[in-house]
Simulated assay, not measured.
Amino acid sequence: MARSEAVRITTAGTSRADDIAARQKRYIISMAIRTACFIGAVAVGPGWLRWVLVAAALLLPYVAVVLANPETHKEDGFALLDGRQDKELPGPENRP
Rank of each mutant, 00 (worst) to 15 (best):
1 M>C: 04
1 M>R: 05
1 M>F: 03
3 R>E: 07
4 S>T: 12
5 E>K: 14
5 E>D: 13
5 E>L: 14
6 A>E: 10
6 A>H: 10
8 R>I: 06
9 I>Y: 11
10 T>W: 04
10 T>Q: 15
10 T>P: 05
11 T>F: 02
12 A>D: 03
12 A>N: 02
12 A>R: 10
12 A>K: 11
12 A>P: 00
13 G>E: 13
13 G>S: 13
14 T>L: 07
15 S>A: 13
16 R>E: 11
18 D>L: 13
18 D>R: 15
19 D>K: 08
20 I>C: 05
21 A>P: 02
21 A>F: 07
21 A>I: 10
22 A>G: 09
22 A>M: 06
23 R>S: 15
24 Q>D: 13
24 Q>N: 15
25 K>N: 10
25 K>Q: 15
25 K>E: 12
26 R>C: 10
27 Y>L: 14
27 Y>D: 04
28 I>P: 00
30 S>G: 12
31 M>Q: 15
31 M>I: 07
32 A>M: 10
34 R>I: 00
35 T>D: 08
36 A>W: 02
36 A>M: 09
36 A>I: 03
37 C>H: 06
38 F>M: 08
38 F>T: 03
39 I>K: 06
40 G>I: 04
40 G>V: 01
40 G>E: 04
42 V>M: 12
42 V>N: 05
43 A>V: 14
44 V>T: 15
44 V>F: 03
45 G>T: 02
48 W>V: 08
49 L>H: 04
50 R>L: 07
50 R>M: 15
50 R>N: 01
51 W>C: 03
52 V>W: 06
55 A>T: 13
55 A>G: 12
56 A>F: 03
59 L>G: 14
60 L>H: 01
61 P>C: 06
63 V>D: 07
63 V>W: 11
63 V>S: 10
65 V>Q: 10
66 V>R: 15
67 L>W: 08
68 A>F: 00
69 N>Q: 12
69 N>T: 14
70 P>D: 08
70 P>R: 11
71 E>F: 12
71 E>R: 13
72 T>E: 15
72 T>A: 11
73 H>F: 06
74 K>R: 14
75 E>D: 12
76 D>R: 07
78 F>A: 08
79 A>D: 13
80 L>N: 13
83 G>P: 04
83 G>V: 04
86 D>V: 08
86 D>S: 05
87 K>A: 13
87 K>W: 06
88 E>L: 11
89 L>G: 06
90 P>S: 06
90 P>M: 06
90 P>D: 07
92 P>V: 12
92 P>W: 08
92 P>K: 11
92 P>F: 09
93 E>T: 09
93 E>R: 09
93 E>N: 11
94 N>K: 10
95 R>E: 09
96 P>Q: 01
